[in-house]
Simulated assay, not measured.
Amino acid sequence: MVNRLNNEYLSLLMLASLHGYDAVVRVLLAHCPADIDQTELKGRAYSNNGDLVHNATALWCALDRAHYGVAQSLIDLGKANVNNGPFHPLLIDAIIRERFDIVCFLVENDYADVNETMTNDQNKCSSLIVAAAKGNTQIMTYLIEKGAKLDYRTCIHENTPLTVAAIEGHIASVKLLYLAGASSNVTNRYGKTPLILAAENDRLNVVDFLLDYNQDETTFNNLELLASSYMVSKNDDERQEPERMIRFLRQSTEKRLLLNMSKSVAQPIAAYDFHKECQSIDDLNQI
């Protein structure tokens, strides 16, 4: 390994890969001692955008600089492991860094599978979920075209790509996933739909979009319950939250009236000073 004054720590193979010297890479692969797996040696290298990346391999270096001929030599001749990235597999790493060119190289050459490649954390996010979290519709469109599972669930929170996009407020990603066939009624581990999670996270444009396509009793009930519960639990001086929750109640009520969908109303009780549930826009205007 070579220590450089700029804090990089590189093997000869990494140096050759960074500079795109394919002939040198092939010589090093052919003459490397059998007891040294130089393709998997890790060091430190600056990425093309100036970040110092730890645990970089020669293959990562070649991909970062878009030296795809070198990358092919490392994989085909040197048996470089595409799952051995700085932290996640190289496909996931490319999506996080929004390197569409690297994503295409790995998938088109069958070096990485869009469904089998997961993050290395306990949640095991798929490539499409990572792209949805970034809000990168170009990469998402490509992954969907390549057969990425639309309703894959993460291991811990059981979130789908649509759930993650809704939480993050990436409206273009939400629209893309929904129109591609992703389920908007699926619930995560905590029983929450993408619409409810969008409402909780103040993603108003996502709520508006999903309400246009989710017009059923369960959706309206859940949104009304969320709004009512939140308003009761918050202090009166926190005006932004009540206003937002009243907005949700108004939307749900308007949708019910438009669809001529009646609401099941509980009888007034002493615990709530015998107040009645809102059933009309006029009722809401009196809040």
Rank of each mutant, 00 (worst) to 15 (best):
T141C: 09
Q72A: 14
L91P: 00
A270K: 13
L41Q: 08
D37L: 13
A270S: 12
G147T: 08
V107L: 06
S228P: 02
L223F: 10
L90F: 03
Y213A: 08
A133W: 00
D37R: 11
P194W: 01
Q215R: 13
G85E: 01
L143M: 11
N7R: 10
D212R: 11
T57Y: 03
L249H: 02
E108Y: 07
K42E: 14
I95M: 02
T57I: 06
L128K: 01
A270D: 14
A271R: 06
T193K: 06
R44E: 13
A34Q: 15
L197R: 04
N48E: 14
I96N: 03
Y68A: 02
N235Q: 06
L249D: 08
M1G: 15
V232R: 11
V186E: 15
I171T: 10
E108W: 08
R4N: 09
D110L: 12
Y111H: 00
L284Q: 10
K234E: 12
N221Q: 10
R65Y: 12
F100G: 13
L128D: 13
L29Q: 04
L176T: 11
H19A: 12
V232I: 09
D64E: 12
T219K: 02
E277D: 14
R4A: 08
Y21I: 07
A227G: 07
P242Q: 06
T117S: 10
E108V: 05
V114E: 07
N136Y: 03
L90E: 08
K134I: 12
E200A: 11
T137Y: 01
D37Y: 03
M261V: 00
S73Y: 05
N49S: 04
E238S: 03
D93H: 11
G191I: 14
K276R: 15
S184W: 01
D121L: 08
L223E: 08
N214T: 14
Q138H: 07
L210A: 02
N201S: 14
L179E: 15
E217S: 10
L41H: 06
T163F: 02
I95H: 04
H170D: 12
L177D: 04
T141D: 14
C32Q: 11
A266Q: 04
L225W: 07
D113H: 10
Y272L: 12
C104V: 13
I269F: 10
